[in-house]
Nucleic acid binder design. Structure first.
Lengths: 194, 194
DNA sequence: ACCTGAACACCGTTCAAGT
DNA sequence: ACCTGAACACCGTTCAAGT
């Protein structure tokens, strides 16, 4: 595995020995995002990317060890862990609702990302960050660890299913009906509070 | 579009003029199911299938107009519309729960099918059949058409998300937590009954 | 009627070589 | 240090020809 974002992380002076790099990983991800937005996930390929960037497709292996590596960087770039103000005085169920709606909005706005989260191993710091945040909300509300992780699974199942269906625009999911189900789930969780 | 299952549907005597077919569509789907079960959806390809069947990959275009056509037949073959006995005296929410669990069991037992349902346009008689059945349950329970379709969206979002996550074995979904969320959703629907 | 190979336009990845 | 083309093992699909 390459050190991710090799060039971007270099805080030390750029005076290295040897041939200077043509690109840095950020530029590759930029180009990938542009293709994703314009033509969807299926159009994102090393070969396509390389012609867009004016390099050999093999050059990209200098920045990412594999296509999966690139896609993970794409996920990391494109969605932010929602900022939840822990100092908030709002009740936990309202905070939870707001965070879920925020994630939903982000994922729907970049079709393809939800698919990556489900399909690839869903590791990566975004997943861990969101997970930790939601677990915190549930534990602070009084759920046991076990109840909290089960509740989280339920919420993620619903969220990702809704996003997948909406973004592939089969019939079914409207934004309004997404809220409806989310309310059912959160009400259900509330009723199970010890 | 080819007439689906051309040979299989022929109830008239098989005496046709011209060269007899080497295969029929059922055999192709059989082979596709075998590959799906053994190696997953990504391994199902016209070329792979054709070597397995001992024909040119181009021969398969005589049975299916495109790969999407084949995949639709794969879905149709592999999952049955759950039999719901309308005469049942059980309350609607129990019937709904049972049907959802049945669909869940079927989809989990054949990883890849849920992905096809979401990704491809989700047309086809299986989807229509299940949809009609669940709508019936909800309408008979007293939901308006609007409420019923929204409820259905919510249930499908959850079901397909859960199956996708479980079959891709990211953390998250256990069969037990699937039931939990399903109960929340059905309880929510019940509480919204006019 | 039905089957076929060649060709086209794509993939990701390995390897050995070039600067 | 970094970049590159050739090669390998794959895709789906079109087309014109073969039986």
């Amino acid at each position: 595995m390459n050190v991710p974002y090799r060039s971007a992380m270099a805080a030390d002076p750029p005076a290295r020995r040897g041939r200077p790099a043509l690109l840095d990983a950020e530029q590759v991800v930029d180009a990938a995002v542009a293709i994703l937005d314009a033509e969807g996930l299926a159009a994102v390929s090393f070969r396509r990317l390389s012609t867009e960037l004016g390099v050999s497709h093999m050059t990209l292996y200098g920045y990412f060890d594999s296509k999966d590596d690139l896609l993970e960087a794409l996920v990391a770039r494109t969605i932010a862990v929602p900022a939840v103000r822990r100092s908030s005085t709002a009740p936990w169920d309202e905070v939870l609702l707001a965070v879920m709606l925020d994630i939903h909005r982000q994922l729907v706005s970049r079709p393809g990302i939800a698919e990556l989260l489900i399909t690839r191993e869903l590791t990566g710091e975004w997943v861990a960050g969101v997970r930790e945040q939601l677990l915190d909300i549930l534990r602070n509300a009084g759920f046991t660890q076990r109840r909290a992780t089960d509740g989280l699974s339920v919420l993620f199942n619903y969220l990702l299913g809704a996003v997948m269906i909406e973004t592939h625009r089969g019939r079914g999911g409207s934004a309004a009906s997404f809220r409806l189900g989310l309310r059912y789930l959160i009400d259900g969780l509330k009723s199970d509070l010890p």
